[in-house]
Amino acid sequence: MPGSSPPRTSRLGKLPRCATGLTGLVRFARVWDGEPCPVADPAATATRLDEDTQTAYDALTPAGAELDPQRSAGLLAYNDSCSHRGLSHWADRFDDAPPLVPGVVNVSAEWVLKGVSDEEAAVALRRARAELVRQGWRVTEYENAAPNRTLRVTPDGSGGVSVSLRVDAFDGDRLLVGAYAEWARYPDGTPLDGRDRPRLPEPLAPAQLRKWLREGRRGRPHHGWRAAPSACTAVLL
């Protein structure tokens, strides 16, 4: 009608547009600040990685191998490479010593076997690959020809902190077994050591060889000896 006011637009009709704008802001914030790290208890992560390396040992069944304590790192939590994420920290990539993210660590478990010949390593890697695949691990890298013998696997599945497991032959008679978790933020109140790193439990794997050392036995376990099947399974945190 002449002189009548134009129809008023309902505010409800504007809500979808506002919601779209908020979604865009959230996405931009994630790109700008970076994806947040998952939160995980470092001690629990270390225990599970230790179990994963035990799983690898039981799959390898390296007869006659010994643990090499001097070259075994054990369970570690470190933040030496946990740099900030996101576009807001893009310039940090060009810094020789970029600032580290406080409260975020990588957790790993590593130990070394000695007395494993190249021929034994080749057989052990083939056996481990088949057994870990049977248990549900996914092979991401495999090379089994001298001088490069390596196996990389990850648990099949998703969710939680990503985990990887590796076995490498080196120095002619050594096998390195390691399990690694991605960066994760530890909860407030996590016990720290003297270097302000999370306290971790003592490693147990490979249980059979650590027991051998604790009992003070000398020499190599005899070649007819085999590891007992492990009850450990591959897990995601």
Rank of each mutant, 00 (worst) to 15 (best):
P2V: 09
S4V: 10
A19S: 02
G21E: 03
T23D: 01
R27E: 03
A29R: 00
G34Q: 07
V39C: 04
A43L: 10
A44S: 06
R48E: 15
T53N: 13
T55E: 14
A59N: 04
L60S: 10
G64Q: 09
P69Y: 00
Q70W: 02
L76D: 10
N79R: 11
S81K: 08
R85G: 13
R85C: 09
D92K: 02
G103K: 02
V105C: 02
G115M: 02
A124P: 06
R129H: 03
A130H: 03
L132A: 08
L132H: 07
V133C: 02
Q135W: 07
W137G: 04
W137C: 08
R138L: 03
R138T: 11
T154D: 02
P155Y: 04
G157P: 05
G160S: 06
L165D: 09
D173Y: 03
R174V: 04
L175V: 11
L176Y: 01
E182N: 15
Y186R: 04
G189I: 05
P191I: 07
L192R: 01
L200A: 12
L204T: 15
L204E: 14
W212I: 04
E215Q: 14
G216Y: 02
P221E: 12
P221A: 11
H223Y: 08
W225A: 13
A228K: 08
A228S: 08
T233W: 01
